[in-house]
Amino acid sequence: MAITYTHPLDKHLRLERIPTLYCPGCGLGIGLGAMLRALDKRISEGVIDPRKVFWVGGIGCTARMVFYVNYDAAHVIHGRSIPFAIGAVLANPELKAIVVGGDGDIAGIGGNHLVHAARRNIDMIVVMFTNFVYAMTGGQVAPTTPRKVKTTTTPYGNPEYPMNAVKLVGSLNANYVARASVTTPHYIEQFFYKALGMSGFRFIEVVSTCPEVYGRHIGLRDPVEMYNELKKRVKYKHKPSLEEAEIDWEKGIVIGEFIERNNPSFIEILRGGQA
């Protein structure tokens, strides 16, 4: 019984940059681990060549995942990870793009690119971590922040209705739209594994915990409490409808695979010369 000293995911990480800068109990690391386990499986199956994978992130806590992974990676500017990935995959269609970002990066400042990449069904996987807040800059209101929540820029409570990215992307031409939670890492792994085997635009929203700058605003004192509060509210459903994608902290958050299509991807259309 030889003792191994390495974590099974170490080969996918840039170990000299671990530990991450994430706060204790941040859900992002859980999500990243689940994604790497799925990627590891696809690599060992021979479906994915790790040399052809690249990760892109814009700006924000989530985006920084890209420099912790032992792959080609781009840590670009705020909101522009999707167009960067578009250029790379169209220039070399052998490449596999994994875009990661927070809801501010992907759906806020980058929202227009999200809409049009989904409409074009461009070949990439976008994993958006929704933590309901702008975390890196200190807890300002985000496009996904629920109504009435007090943040550093909504001290009297958020007056706005939040954006629902699953409904938005699902209404377009994306081949895959799913939602999981950091409290269900096995679903993140399962959905990401499936996405890695598909073509076209694949979108996974991961509801995450930000114990440091969001949890505190809503009165949750520590990472475990926030994790458990989110876990209580998350409900898996088999093939839920887009209507069921509504995020309601009181009524619960439905996770599952909302959309699964096999529409020709942008690259497939370019290659086939289809109009």
């Binding site: 250029g87 790379a88 227009n112």
Partner: peptide, 24 residues
């Protein structure tokens, strides 16, 4: 080669940066 009309100029320049890193 590939030509794509992007959703705006911001997308356009970021796409060519990505393409350049893909080696073209």
């Amino acid at each position: 080669g590939v030509v794509i009309q992007m959703e705006d100029e911001i997308g356009s320049i970021n796409a060519i940066i990505g393409a350049s890193w893909a080696g073209v």
